[in-house]
Design a protein around this nucleic acid. Structure first.
Lengths: 327, 327
DNA sequence: ATGAAAGCGCTAACAC
DNA sequence: GTGTTAGCGCTTTCAT
């Protein structure tokens, strides 16, 4: 089969132990012999069997990453960046997709425990979920957990995310400065922390009586349906804020279809600053979440935890990006 | 640390071998004892150490999946489906992203070889690449390779993909039936098989002298720039075909911005049928690639190869989806 | 500075 | 049917 340490040892005329030490750059082995062995190993095309190594070392060198939806370009971007940073840091990355299903998320974590991952980065689902006991199992297994992009209430763990409430406040403030007086917020189900934060920010600036529309899901089509409804009900509004960019796009399309001019009659805002806010004829004002920084911080923190350090909560600022849809 | 087979054996009052056999549902072990042992193991929360298992069995039970760009929703969808099918089939899936960088792709394959993956599903990059020797290394390692969504010329391996040429032919035919006489195709660099196929289909129906614009990359912004150019050069055209939906969106936006009415003055088509073709005010005509089927077939084929069977080339049909942008 | 040997947790011949 | 034992390939302690 493949070439083993034993083969290298024989070829080099030394023992397996020496080869192992040499390859791991131990100072125990003579400089010269070390070099010779490493050269020989490379020449022979030796590559250690990762499973033997993991078994002997009793650690895997891999961290798990769980995202709720890989087709959402926001999470896709997160995955890409975390993947890059993690590899650069010399760890393996095991990517899993919970598909927004609590059951799936639990299964994934259990599998990660079995696979002895040394840390878990988890982006919460965008649905409410009750059972959280899989996190206790993680904890019992002594595996550090770090939330990214949002957290679950009731689960004790650090988190790297943006100040979503503040981001939303900035958006509303911006709209009001432009003269909007009747803003409406389109959001998803209550009890999802990342959404609740946005709602709180909205209410704080727009006033507690401002209109908040709660949809079943934070999707394009749900936004479309909701705006249809608003128009049909004759609700008066001059600003439409959405909890993500794709929803804003849906909202805008429906408004335009009904002859409602954006931004003249209604200003529209998204959130996240993913590709959707830039590829429309009418670019969308939004709060940019700095994905790359988020990823960098997440990798940095989990790395600390893995080497026995303490993690911190990291709260990054979003950046207000003003585009055509609000001016 | 965790609980081992030895612990279960002791608790059950049998040997490790018996436990191992019982857990693997071997018929060698007594029905009753088997049940008893399995129950006990579950009760004790026993989970096998995957690395010890992989080491002993000399196989990993995982297959590798390489995609060029996870932020492209087309590949993201592919990943999601393959992930589902692969798990359902009882294999682990190792997801890697080549970021359209040949060097990265090579590194990934080498790492997969080291990790003893039992098969590789690879979606080619959308750039030309010269060196293909990493595939030889795969082959030498005896690891089956299956291309998905496209293939590399010059690499001997089976492929599961759509008949892109035919798909493009259908689009052009559709446009011509609608009365278009001057179609233009926006594509990417030459030498990328998945693009070349589309170009061939286009030329075959539109005629060999039809205009083909070759861009550096198949992106939104490249399409925008290209259409600006076309208009500026005063090129006469009444149909714009793009090799993907995002480009079609860009093209459409630029046309509209220049007062060029779609579809009255110019019909526009995309390709793939990803979300972008449905979320625009003006939905885009496109050729739908049946991602789920593609994924199912890919998993099915690679599975066959892993159990020693023969793979087949699979060529699926795209489906013409006519929307507003072309009528 | 190097080698011998035990051990990581599991499987699979082979013996009983 | 069940137990004994020898690996799988690597690391690491302890001799030398």
């Amino acid at each position: 089969m493949a070439i083993r340490i034993k083969d290298v040892a024989r070829a080099a005329g030394v023992s397996e132990a020496t080869v192992s030490l040499a390859l791991n750059r131990s100072s125990l082995v003579n400089q010269k012999t070390g070099q010779r062995i490493r050269a020989l190993a490379k020449e022979m095309g030796y590559a250690p069997n990762p499973y033997a190594k993991k078994l002997a070392l009793q650690k895997s060198g891999v961290v798990g990453l769980v995202v709720p939806d890989i087709e959402n370009v926001y999470y896709a971007g997160l995955v890409r960046h975390i993947n890059r940073f993690m590899r650069a840091a010399g760890y393996g990355l095991s990517i899993a997709i919970s598909e927004n299903q609590p059951r799936m998320e639990a299964d994934i974590l259990d599998e990660m425990i079995r696979n002895r991952v040394e840390g878990v980065l988890l982006a919460p689902m965008n649905v409410k979920s009750e059972r959280k006991d899989h996190f206790e199992r993680l904890e019992r297994a002594g595996i550090p957990l770090l939330f990214v992009t949002a957290r679950y209430e009731g689960v004790e763990a650090n988190c790297v995310m943006c100040d979503l409430e503040k981001g939303m406040r900035e958006l509303v403030k911006h709209l009001m400065e432009r003269g909007c007086t009747h803003p409406v917020l389109l959001t998803g189900p209550e009890g999802v922390q990342a959404l609740d934060e946005r709602v709180r920010g909205f209410l704080r600036v727009a006033g507690a009586e401002a209109l908040v529309e709660r949809l079943d899901e934070v999707s394009y089509s749900a936004a479309c349906r909701s705006v249809e409804q608003l128009l049909w009900r004759g609700v008066r509004f001059d600003a439409l804020l959405c909890v993500n960019d794709l929803m804003a796009l849906g909202a805008m399309n429906i408004l335009e279809a009904h002859g409602c001019k954006v931004p003249d009659q209604v200003s529209v805002c998204g959130f996240d600053d993913v590709v959707f806010s830039r590829i429309t004829e009418m670019p969308i004002t939004t709060a940019c979440q700095p994905l790359e920084q988020l990823a960098r911080e997440a990798v940095f923190q989990i790395e600390r935890a893995m080497i026995g350090g303490e993690m911190q909560n990291i709260l990054l600022d979003t950046r207000l990006v003003i585009r055509k849809s609000s001016r």
